[in-house]
Design a protein around this nucleic acid. Structure first.
Lengths: 227, 227
DNA sequence: ACATTAATTCAACGCTTGTTGAATTGTCAA
DNA sequence: TTGACAATTCAACAAGCGTTGAATTAATGT
């Protein structure tokens, strides 16, 4: 005789004072990790449901279509990251006033929030950084999402860099930013994988080590091109 | 009454003097483009077959499984690119002898073959560069394929850079190489898309423009970190 | 106590996926 | 001319896909 598992909880759960549901967050966190690691087409809603410990249908119930879910996952921490970066930039600028903030300080304002994210106890931030790298390098999602959620912030940073480098053309500034963005993306894309190319000299999950060298590397490149 | 299309050619085609079949090349070229643009999981063997103008079953017949095909596509031009880069490096080194080749010259040897590829009349090279970017930033394929086909060459270039920068540690060299690799990948990942972030100041499909600035940018970064 | 409603499950839909085996066609060597 | 065989097509397989509608459960407002 078939017997249902009575231990499974169903129906409406006890109300909490949080604005977003616990099950919804579980889905978002699992999606964040899976999308970052295997890409949009690389995972299945059923795989995701299993990882989140949730029924498949619940994903559609909360977030609509698969691509809607992807957008939601991407947007969630984008807002936070933007706020942190903007805050860091404004702090650097006010500290340098009445002079302009230096290239190094502007770049640091751009990168430091990511360092904090990497070191956060919330491991979801590490996944999000990898997701950011995936989206940035994706021909399919890059245009759609990066522009939508980061264009305005990037323009602000470019303005700050223009102040620090008065001889630079717009093309110079944007290309140099582009190089920085690429270097950063690859670093996050490799999070967790040990780079066998380097014979152990450089482990990609060691963000601290990458971060320390990145600021002088990028700043020096900016100065050279935008002199 | 159902009538078969008698105009479709089947059976063994006339023998050519080329080592690889014409149909097989059509499949590889179409796969190169689709994989680069939409990723491994983003395309279907049936989509690929349509693009190549070929029956689906022929893909398996020639190349085995889907992942076998991916490996074959990636390997095809990797060998050529490796030979070109090695040749360029050796030329730079012999021109500088008895001194070591400068950082700029080594970086140029690494990048210049890609510039030639971009300008090639064989448009497949453009697709391959985008594929390279996809693989490099992919958590799934990065370890598998980059190491398999490029590790040896990268080590050779690192050796050349070590000669040019005697004070650099291995970690310095590998991280700086890593930044260069990331900057390059993002450039190729964006091939063909106009970067709206830049308000027109920088179009990602303009590789010439990216290339010109990249050498001074990267070389300057190397010198700063590895001083 | 009771109706309401949000949260969750279950089962299924129609379609697509990668892959395979058998049948068919054309080429070439003998 | 014939026989072998490579290249190509066709049809189908089992499995998996995203999504949906109906049923079920539990908390809530009155």
């Amino acid at each position: 005789m078939p017997q249902k598992n009575k231990s499974i909880k169903v129906g409406r759960p006890a109300k909490t004072n949080k604005e977003s549901s616990a099950r919804g967050d579980k889905i978002l966190n699992a999606a964040e990790e899976l999308f970052a690691l295997q890409g949009y087409d690389g995972i299945t809603l059923r795989t995701l449901a299993t990882k989140a410990g949730v029924d498949v249908a619940l994903i559609s119930y909360y977030f609509g279509s698969k691509s809607d879910l992807f957008d939601t996952v991407f947007k969630r921490r984008a807002k936070i990251l933007n706020a942190e970066r903007l805050n860091a930039l404004q702090k650097a600028q006010s500290e340098a006033a009445p002079a302009f903030a230096s290239v190094e300080k502007v770049i640091e304002a751009f990168l430091h929030p990511l360092k904090i994210a990497q070191e956060s106890s919330d491991s979801g931030w590490k996944n999000y950084c990898a997701l950011l790298a995936y989206v940035n390098n994706s021909a399919v999602w890059g245009n759609k999402l990066m522009g939508k959620y980061f264009n305005s912030l990037v323009d602000t940073f470019i303005d700050a860099l223009r102040d620090a480098l008065p001889n630079a053309s717009d093309a110079d500034l944007y290309w140099c930013y582009h190089y920085m963005s690429g270097a950063l993306s690859l670093t996050f894309a490799n999070t967790g994988r040990i780079d066998k190319m380097s014979k152990g000299a450089c482990q990609s999950d060691d963000f601290q080590s990458a971060y320390d060298r990145m600021i002088p590397f990028i700043a020096s490149g900016f100065r050279q091109v935008c002199a």
